[in-house]
Nucleic acid binder design. Structure first.
Lengths: 229, 229
DNA sequence: ATTGACTGATTGTCGGACAATCTCAGTGTG
DNA sequence: CACACTGAGATTGTCCGACAATCAGTCAAT
């Protein structure tokens, strides 16, 4: 018998370290809007509040910084990342690149990758039909776009896409205006996928471009206006 | 007078923490091939060897892991990332996406971004003409591609591109075969940029695709062959 | 051949310590 | 009043030492 044969492929126990738990808790707080952008994340305060050592908190903060969710200024501290207008534009442009590239690969993508797009769309429709938190709808919405980026079938590109969506969630945290264009968006996404299914790639691309332009516009409204000189 | 005006853009005092220095030293060792892929990076050994505390080494290792240059397995340790064939293919595909997108934006890109491409090309030509380390040539070669990715003018996309190039340098570490196709590559890049200058975007794209396919092929030769069952 | 127990090495987390640095209010000086 | 200096307090960066948890290998027992 081969040595490393895995006879129980469905079984797995992943050890979750305290650092991971702390990082997850911080992420949750960020996305729920409990911690506003710009808030200082003091190591000692967090350590006492969470009942862990400072070094543990420090390492968790390092993870958030690596994800782009927090900024660390040497000798000054770590703070919740605050996106300015340039950040928003950059995130949206990067999204456009990744998702467009995914769409262009629709034909060559695996059936599984395409199914993820369909599944994300139906889940989104299910949520918008019933009563769902604005948070949940946002998550489902992003899941669709994530699936589009997933059409690249590149773990690394999907990883950067995830980082982008995390930043978007950060920008949307606390905003929470249950905008009435949800139904409109639902149609837009449905149309987009329909175009893909029929092989109309070019049309799907322009659809996406318009959709993302709108998204950028509404995201830009979340950034506090700067005072002109 | 505005408060935060930067009258000396070239001046900056960046406080380099010990963690950063350790991380830089490790990166250097990785790229120079002193540390082979798969090598275990023991925290205590590194700490003693570098004369720093274990926690400092630990944090530096966290940076490398975040960059994808090392893998950390819980309770087992950190090791130099070893790329397999799938990794190579993924990195190359991701490169293609980012650099293609940059090329398509050639017309809309800023003059500065285009100049970076030209500068990288001339620097590459200068190095290949004279006597230069294989390391240096590789760096200059990657600088060209980095400039192509820079045409996106997106800090985030450029960041992921940098991560990809770091992985490539890792794969190329120690290989160091001064391949004779350098001259050929020089011509290829020159042609590519020439096509861009003349606005022949589509041709430039196919040029890039072929070039990257070749690069993928030679990169795949660096991964140790797996034993078939 | 499988199981179980033991050992040594390594990591994960903790707590405390101290110097370096930043912030800011206060103080003095012209 | 404007300005530079100073000092206290807070916070981070780094170090040290400690200990439990976990892992890899050995070796005996069944």
């Amino acid at each position: 018998m081969p040595e490393h044969e895995n006879n129980f492929p469905t079984l797995s126990v992943e050890p979750v370290s305290i650092v991971d738990r702390v990082a997850d808790e911080l992420r949750r707080a960020l996305f729920e809007g409990e911690l506003e952008p710009g808030t200082a994340l003091r190591e000692v305060a967090l350590a006492e509040s969470l009942g862990v050592a400072r070094s543990t908190v420090r390492e968790a903060l390092g993870l958030l910084v690596a994800d782009g969710l927090a900024d660390r200024i040497p000798n000054k501290g770590t703070a919740v990342h605050a996106l300015d207008a340039d950040d928003i534009r950059d995130v949206c442009h990067a999204r456009l690149v990744l998702e467009s590239s995914g769409i262009e690969r629709w034909d060559q993508a695996s059936e599984q990758a395409r199914d993820e797009v369909r599944a994300a769309l139906t889940e989104f429709n299910r949520l918008t039909a019933g009563t769902a938190t604005s948070q949940e709808i946002t998550a489902a919405h992003l899941a669709i776009h994530r699936a589009l980026a997933g059409l690249n079938e590149s773990p690394r590109l999907l990883g950067t896409a995830d980082a982008l969506y995390a930043e978007i969630r950060l920008a949307l945290a606390g905003v929470d205006r249950a905008r009435g264009n949800v139904r409109e968006q639902a149609h837009a996404h449905g149309d987009l996928v329909r175009l893909l299914e029929r092989g109309h790639i070019a049309e799907a691309l322009t659809d996406l471009r318009e959709h993302l332009a709108g998204a950028e516009q509404s995201l830009l409204e979340t950034v506090p206006a700067v005072d002109a000189p």
